[in-house]
């Protein structure tokens, strides 16, 4: 395995819960690896599966999508729609020959800074074990 390999993680966080949760990790100064980069979306249910697949086929080592806990969605059930799309994403990964662990969907509330940091850390550790995305040029 490449010793100097630094996984690149694309993270999509919903505006209302998870992005605020990631902010809360900051406020509480809970540290996590710098490999995780957050793109803010209004709702986890806004993210088209193609965006996730594109990111992975362009060489992102992992994609993490974070939404509100079930019941907390600002738009009622956008997070549950994201969950269904997540299943579809899993199937496409299989077709592409990518490990299912490269995609992860998690619920993070606005106050769960520690939880966000833990998930981010775990994701990076998992990707370190998996090695670089074979699509990486």
């Amino acid at each position: 395995m490449n010793e100097t390999y630094e996984p690149v993680v694309v993270t999509f966080c919903c505006n209302w819960c998870s992005y605020a949760g990631a902010d809360a990790a900051g406020t509480a100064k809970v540290q996590y690896p710098s490999n995780v980069h957050i793109v803010r979306v209004m709702c986890s249910g806004m993210l088209h599966p193609n965006i996730v697949i594109d990111a992975l086929s362009k060489g992102a080592d992992g994609v993490l999508v974070c939404g509100c806990h079930p019941g907390d969605c600002h738009y009622q059930e956008g997070n549950l729609k994201a969950e269904k799309r997540g299943e579809a994403i899993g199937l496409i990964l299989e077709d592409l020959g990518l490990e299912p662990e490269r995609f992860r969907l998690e619920w993070v509330s606005a106050s769960e800074g520690t939880r966000f940091a833990r998930i981010a850390t775990e994701m990076v550790e998992t990707l370190r074990e998996l090695g670089p995305n074979p699509f990486r040029s």
């Binding site: 900051g26 100064k29 540290q31 710098s34 957050i38």
Partner: peptide, 24 residues
Amino acid sequence: NLRNQCTWVHAHDKEGVARKARTL
């Protein structure tokens, strides 16, 4: 978000925080 999602959460990783700030 250079503060809550970068300098505050990678304060001890000098190289990583600089790289991430450039990326963001």
